[in-house]
Amino acid sequence: MRIYVCVKQVPDTSGVVAVNEDGTLNRASMQTIINPDDLVAMEQALMIKDATGCQVTAVTMGPPPAEGMLRELLAMGADDAILISAREFGGSDTFATSQIIAAAITYTGLNDEDMIFCGRQAIDGDTAQVGPQIAEKLNLPQISYAAEIKKEGNEVTVKRMLEDGYMMIKQQTPCLVTCISDQDSHPRMMSIAGINAAYKKPYTVLDFETLKDEPLIELDKIGLKGSPTNIFVSFTPPLKGIGVMLEGNDKKTTDKLASMLLEKHVI
């Protein structure tokens, strides 16, 4: 059994956020971190590994420096890592990215008992699209917003969080799950033994030549040119004005509050 964990290197938004003139993020000038939800997905996979001894594979698409992130995931406990990296893939939007990652997983092999874990969404684009799109392209069932995942044989039980409750879902593998963090999910740290092993574990780079003939790859739908999404402008939204304060603890005040909320269609 193997769990692929899809991960993304994102700008550290606690530092300086820089934007290029064309509206895209100036990633080179920013510190990077591993997307927090992806770390949760990795922790979920490692917990299943702890219980079953399965193989955990970290997968990312990005420039060669993304290796540093993958080595950290190997030091956390992943067994192997795959970097999908080529100039032809650069500038891909979620549609193109999911196609390439799906092709990379097909190329590497997806068996009946395998699963793919993703973070719910990345903190840079916040689209939450890549995970579900990978599932669509691989024609796999998908479960999003997973807070707990238990695997028994070829069946997985997932606690799927909703705004006001949760669902318990049983699903046959292979399938794709997107993970969210909750109060109990603390991604483990690297360990020193893990660090010592990180540069000795299997590490594969899949380039354009390797993937271009995969059936899922449509050559006119990858990279910046093949991406249907274009950024026209990026801007910082204006700050909201100061709120309105109502004073008083009588019925008149609460009536006024209720009428204001009704007016704004809040209630």
Binding site: A75, M189, M190, I192, I195, A198, Y199
Partner: peptide, 18 residues
């Protein structure tokens, strides 16, 4: 070395979080 840099990062994270 790469491993020493990772150890530094781990130790810093441990110090900050724990």
């Amino acid at each position: 070395t790469k491993e020493q840099a990772m150890l530094k990062k781990l130790a810093a994270q441990f110090a900050e979080e724990e």
